[in-house]
Amino acid sequence: MQVRRVGERALLVECADLGEVTATYAVLRDRQAELAVTDLVPAARTVLLDGVVDVESVAALLEGLPPQAGDLDPGPRRMVEIPVTYDGPDLAEVARQWSVEEAEVVRIHTTTEFVVAFCGFAPGFAYCTGLPDALAVRRRAEPRSRVPAGSVALAGEFASVYPSASPGGWQLIGSTAIPVWRPEAEPPALLEPGTTVRFRDAGT
C-alpha cells in the first residue's frame, strides 16, 4: 500500500478506486485496536488513520501489506433496508438525465445493491456506491437552502439519505421515515462505512 505522512500522528493510505477503499477500510477496521488508531476515515480514494500512537510501526506495517483488491470478499457486512416513498421533487429530473421513465428510476434505485463507501458533509451522511458510471447524476445548478431530513438523494455516482435538515445540492428522488442519524443510539449512524444498503419502494 502507498502511504503518505500527515503531520505527527496520522497516515493516509492511497487506493486505486472506491472498491479498494472499502476493502482497505474493512481490513483496517478489523485491526483498529491492534494498530492503536483513534480514527479510521475512508473517503473517495484514501483511508486516513488519525490518532496513531506509533506512526513509524504502523506505516511500516501498512507499506508491507498488498493493496486490498475491491473484489475480495470483505466478509459478512451489515445490511440495512430503507423503505422509500418515491415522491421527490427531482424524480423527473433524474429520469430526464437517465433518459428513462420515472418508474424506471425507481426500479434501478430499488434493485441496485449499494455499499456505504464513506461518510462526510454532516454526521451520518453516507456516500453509497453501486450505480454504474453511466448513471452518474449531475447536481442541481442551484443548491436548496434547506433539504428535509430523510430525503433520499442522488449526486454523481452516489446515493444518500439526508440525516438531518441542511442545505444541499443533491437531486431528491424520495423520502424515508427511517432515521439514519441518532446520536444516542449504538451505532449512531444507520449507514456506517461498509454497510450494504437496499432501498425498497414503501408504496408497494
Binding site: D39, P42, L48, P188, A189, E192
Partner: peptide, 9 residues
C-alpha cells in the same frame, strides 16, 4: 469527541 470521524462527526 475523537473516534467518530468515520461517521462524519
Amino acid at each position: 469527541r475523537p473516534g467518530w470521524a468515520h461517521l462524519g462527526v
